[in-house]
Amino acid sequence: MMQSVVSSLSTTNTSNKTLRWLANTLYRKDNLFLLLLLTPPLLWFGVVYLGSLFALLWQSFYTFDSFSMLVTPDLTLENYRSLFDATNFDIILRTLDMAVSVTIATALIGFPIAYYMTRYGSPAEKGFFYVAVILPMWASYIVKAYAWTVILSQQGVLYWCIHHLGLMSALNYILQIPNIGGNTLATSNIGRVIVFTYIWLPFMILPIQAALERVPSNLLQASADLGAKPAQTFRKILFPLVFPGVVAGSIFTFSLTLGDYIIPQLVGPSGLFIGTMVYTMQGSVGNIPLAAAFTVVPIILVSIYLAMAKRAGAFDAL
């Protein structure tokens, strides 16, 4: 009995020793430790993430024979050239238009909410707002998009509200504006902006809220102390300091809108988006090279957007 306890003690001792030796070695050689720590995520990121992206980019130079509907690995720039064909370029402009509108709309709606959360909300209110902002993200995206088609339809609740508020003539006036309007809300660009804004709003509110949280309140007090009226404090102190948060949020809303292919099919006027175009090209048509070329467009647009934001000093306060 005694013997076995002693022997089991000694085995735990040796395993402890090995563990300690391992821990001490890793502590002394922290490069080895970092290597162990980073190898799995770097493999994942390098192979799965960047690898697939580069495979996609590579395929955008392949040739699609529209006659035989076959893809051949002959390298060509034809896919990129065809992006500038009138019909394809329209798709890009239409998508870009929507992405910009949605970004502006989410920023305009998101900022006041985030501002209220940080500057005025009690801890309980803050918690409520967090849940209220994040909760819709737990529901299925497709369900939400379909729900909006019902809300926006002519028999829907929004029309009912507008009708009872006596604002039908105002709505009809707005719907008659070219490019923005349409036959009904559900088939207008306004409707599409509303749905996109609803879906992406959390992605705008949370970064702005985080940025606002980082601005010490004594900076705002210092500004007021130096004679700045609230509007000046907002313009010269608060907004420049929060702007990186707005940019971070807008990167989400901008790129998510650029790549979306479901909402454009469900709400708004007909006409392809980059996302629906990619979907069509790689699905029913089988033109993977052109689909790949279209995929590059949002990457380039977001890169340009980031470069512009950097030049505008969006990251100076980080």
């Binding site: 900076l219 210092a222 102190i237 420049p240």
Partner: peptide, 14 residues
């Protein structure tokens, strides 16, 4: 017509 020097300075970082 008063101005304050703050404890942690509160200089505008940007």
């Amino acid at each position: 017509e008063v101005n304050t020097v703050f404890q942690d300075y509160a200089l505008f970082p940007h």
